[in-house]
Amino acid sequence: MKVYITASSAITPQNTFDSEKYLDVWQSSDLPYQLAIEPDYKSVIDPKLARRMSRIIKMSVATGNKVLAEADIGQPDAIVVGTGLGCIKDTEKFLREIINEEEGLLSPTAFIQSTHNTIAGQLALMLQCSEDNFTYVNRGHSFENALADAMMRIYEGADHVLLGGTDEMTSEVHNILTHMNCGGNTLLGEGACFFMISNTKIDGAVCIEGLDTVNYITTQQITERVKSFLRRNNVDTNEVDALILGIGEGLGDPYYKEIIQMFTPDIPVINFKEVTGEYFTASAYAFNVGSEMLRKQCIFPKILISGNNTSGLTKVLIYNHYQGVNHTISLLSL
């Protein structure tokens, strides 16, 4: 059984939400981290509801709503969301109130909105969707957990699953993560990417041929892992038309180097973290940009770091790792 992305939407630090302007005008910023470009929400979220939503909820609901509209699905069979830190802004806010008020009288609002599953819960509430509702929070595999679940639901018989990967950044979280050196050389970022995962191929649908996640693998093992992934999916290395990698600023990173060396030197190499920056669910965007590349038959020059495309795109390989620990391999095809 095949699994398809039948609609996809992303809010990232570049222009990705408006399909017409997708990655066309490049934004540069002086901020210490990459801040998502939020659209005018009025067209996608009821303003009465939007007023009560935090940034991560608004970004998620906007991309979620857009995907539902694009796929023309009123009620998905499940809502599955991956988020590394969840509603961290409200978490931070409530924690600050506890500390400032020394555990005195507190307003519950931030606490109510702070739980990781507020995003999936809010979508269920808006859609009045009583079906399965899951939230995964698994470090650099938060989105991958959610994607694997969505794929399993298609195997279990679901028709359409609303899937998301989403994280927000705040200046305080940025400060803490910087002290922890969480981004390496790559700027930290944020964003929300939602997808409709379906069991049937419609016009413009992109197939997710497979997904492999692994932890603590060495650079020596990574090429073998990718080779066996491709073998399992009956794809030869020379059939891969482009690589979508989470390199960021880590051009010297041995994992990405090893992967690139598996392919011919002129294979297009896309650096998706150029768009998103680094965060727990950044890899969700690789699936968005991969779908866009296949659908539009387009290599976006701003994120192309080497190679060129001459023969059209039918298969693109996604590879990302989070801090050398959580590795992700996937293949999209037209």
Binding site: F134, Y136, N138, R139
Partner: peptide, 27 residues
Amino acid sequence: GHDCGYSTMKVANKLGLKGILQTISTA
């Protein structure tokens, strides 16, 4: 160790688990 996935990783490392790891946070 703030994020929820950390506890999963630590348990897996401690027990030597190399299979699928999932962390769920639905309150």
